[in-house]
Write a protein that binds this DNA or RNA. Sequence first.
RNA 1: GCCCCCAUCGUCUAGCGGCCUAGGACGCCACCCUUUCAAGGUGGAGAUCAGGGGUUCGAAUCCCCUUGGGGGCACCA
Length: 476
Amino acid sequence: MTTPRVRYAPSPTGEPHIGNIRSALFNWLYARATGGSFIVRIEDTDQNRLVPGAFDAILDALDWLGLDQDEGPRVGGAYGPYVQSERLNLYTERAAWLVAQGHAYYCDCTSERLDAMRKAQQEAGRSPGYDRHCRERGLAPTDGTPTVVRFKMPTEGTITVRDRIRGEVSFEAGLLDDFVLLKSDGFPTYHLANVVDDHAMAITHVMRAEEWLPSAPRHQQLYQAFGYDMPELVHLPIILGPDRSKLSKRHGATSVRQFQEEGYLPDAMLNFLAMLGWSLDGETDVLSREDLQRHFSLERVVASPAVFDHAKLDWYNGTYIRALTPGALALQLAPLLEGQGWRVDPAYLARIVPLEQERLKKLSEAPEALAFFFNEPHPEAIVQSLPKGLDAATTKHALEAALHTAEHAEDWEPQALEAAYRGLAEGLDIKTGPLFGAVRVAVTGRTAAPPLFDTLAVLGRERVLARLRAAIGALG
RNA sequence: GCCCCCAUCGUCUAGCGGCCUAGGACGCCACCCUUUCAAGGUGGAGAUCAGGGGUUCGAAUCCCCUUGGGGGCACCA
């Protein structure tokens, strides 16, 4: 068996979509698992849909996820160029060859005629498709009249393609029309460029989303007409939104960039995406990048579509955040916190990060979660959040006592502080819950926060004293 | 409308004829731990394997039909 060569072939028409990148991931994993090559080819054959910046966005997304390429526009390779607009000569030559061989023909039907034709077909209750008006006209390309090149599909018989996931799939040839190979602007369509390049780049496995399955018989006919060997077809299950329709913008975040900005970790993303349509054994669900590269196999890719479950992604992300070393997390968080305008001292950050690490689901939550380490809590927030179990007078009295305890604490360390405050609770004859709760709110402005005494220790005595005084003042 | 694909807990899935009175994970609920929130631990609810026919001694697993869902029918990819 030859070494696999697989490819990810996106169009630079916008921000890379998460469903799209999942295809990239499966290709990459297969290449890595088999010792094959992962190739990226940019399919920019639709001049009208090009979006400036999309080219870089795609490659940046791959870089962010760590899907390193063996060949591609940024890394080069022996089969380049890896951008289709730089390969136009190849397509026009191949299209002309097909015409010369009698497999294709020129067509000058106007879009008006085609529209009218389709409309009539629909109204007659037939399925839309080119009526082969120009098939036998023997047109030659002429100046002035826009022409396209169409492929001659068989008009009868059955076309059977073999898909790695689904087995044999048959199509009635007569239902497939003579599709366009070369557009009137001289650019190839997807069908032509894809087949020509996959062959030219010695691709062994075409792995793409299932939505491409209906065009497989056309491609198969093209391979046959060219006399090319057919690569193996692998149509990956599609990713659905919660409503079970194809995942799209209206389902919320779908671009890789959005996930990156929301603070998802590449490895968490990879793990989650890999489990959408593939599994190792049905038991193991946390798999590192290395595990995935080692164990990925086509045999275990399922045929049915998968719903994108945001909650599960969040769980994966939390799991991977917790697995980070505190130092690594701090490094990730520093720019986010600095973005708030906070001066982030590395030593201070190193102390607060462990306190929040197991509570974070996304990195983007950090600024809010850690805000009280940088900003003084708002007095109003304090008053509103104070424990309801105690009346105002008792609360104030408790905080005054807490202030006193803090002022006289001998050792400003978590254990010592806890001991001192437990003693205080006893002396005040208040349960530790309400007491600690009142102090927590006074010092952090929140009812939910990291362990109180660790927090006090990190905040430092001076700030704690100031905040307790402010809280007491706010109580009037 | 036509063509194609798919069908196990709400979700991701294990299962490839007997090991299944269907396993794991997320989510959910309860309890434990506990100063709050998390994290962690334990337990629970949750799928008559879409429905109906076959095949077989035996079917979630094989075949057919029905139903449901999805995808595709451009000079877009």
